[in-house]
Design a protein around this nucleic acid. Sequence first.
DNA 1: CATATGCTCAATAGATTACTTGATCAAGGC
DNA 2: GCCTTGATCAAGTAATCTATTGAGCATATG
Lengths: 231, 231
Amino acid sequence: MSHDGATLTARAFKDAVYEQFARITKALASPVRLEIVDVLAQGERTVDALAREVGQSLANTSQHLRSLKEARLVEARRDGTFVHYRLADPQVIEVWRAVRALGERQLAEIERTVAAYLGDADGFESVTADDLQRRLAEGEVVLLDVRPDAEYRAGHLAGARSIPVGELAERLAELPPDATVVAYCRGPYCVMSYDALAILRDHGRRGVRLAEGLPDWRAAGRPVQGGHGLG
Amino acid sequence: MSHDGATLTARAFKDAVYEQFARITKALASPVRLEIVDVLAQGERTVDALAREVGQSLANTSQHLRSLKEARLVEARRDGTFVHYRLADPQVIEVWRAVRALGERQLAEIERTVAAYLGDADGFESVTADDLQRRLAEGEVVLLDVRPDAEYRAGHLAGARSIPVGELAERLAELPPDATVVAYCRGPYCVMSYDALAILRDHGRRGVRLAEGLPDWRAAGRPVQGGHGLG
DNA sequence: CATATGCTCAATAGATTACTTGATCAAGGC
DNA sequence: GCCTTGATCAAGTAATCTATTGAGCATATG
């Protein structure tokens, strides 16, 4: 049954192989690290910025990054006193997207959590990437990136303009009064676009939400502007 | 910044969402459970069969299955005194494939482990799915499924014939003497096709290996025969 | 009804993980 | 050289996870 070149038993070989792949799944087996991966999918971040974003202490964030780095999911680069982390491979985003797709299909709790935060009454309309690309071509809509400015600069959907959600209320005048706004942010579970729609609605503007974020858009091979490498 | 329908803070919302997705990654964060998923990707199994396959005790296997079931990655069906487990969704295979692809790109240790088992001297040739489909059309090769008979019956590549690796030595006469044999089994880390090639070589036959297994073939949308649903 | 089989459950010990705190380190500014 | 900032490291505690053991449950059979 076993072949001649073996220096391991078949069992030991399998153990070793699955052990290696489990390094990856173990690295992802934490809500905090999943969130870190999700944020890094937008572009690189310093440890301090990540820590604030995910609501963890600096030391704890640093240690989570260390375990992600040991599993080769992220890489670091030092710049003065700052250390910038980034995803080590675009395939990391693919794994996260696959997990997300599975959760959406299998875990009803996720839908309930989203509904609990948004309140069923909100009923914000969302559009698919296909819809959007057709409507963009027809010039019907304004595409609005509501993420922080730095993320817009690190890469954004082709044709999008930037107004971070925190500045949206005071910068409404920049948007043509009659156009429908399509707002997007980091991804399907990012709340910035929801918040942006609420602001638009409160000021009598029409707005819809793009359900996907930049990483999903990029993964689908759609046009991106201004990105630098891995986003 | 926060919108009016909220009954959770943005932070609590994110925590809840990532916590849910982490149920999936935690369920996969074990070499044993990864192997269980890999085996179930071939088709459903009883607890006892799985336990023997993965080299774990019955009780331990049952508990691993329980945690996979709680994360909605597998489902069970009772048949007499047997309980058959199967993957709850084809997307589970996609997650596993994404993890595998990432590991192959990032973890040099995996390549070394494979080389240590196979011995560098073996140098078995492998073909891609595209190669195979072209050569099959030209009638140059015999496609051989070397997995156990039950797995062949649960679904196999279109046009494949079945000789389980354990019976290959005594059933060599069934193969046309001059044809090149393309052997496949469960996937890239399954050793049955390697063992089959060693047997063929020892009897002076020409054989190559298909690097992918049935689940990968199916995921690529290529033709499968005799499968029943989720494989 | 008694028994066997296939599986699940509960209890446990040992290992691993998560987060905190405080010390330390590396690079840059004064 | 000293101080500040951003990040890492080490130690400690609480919580969680893994595999084992043995008991218990469901289904089928004699």
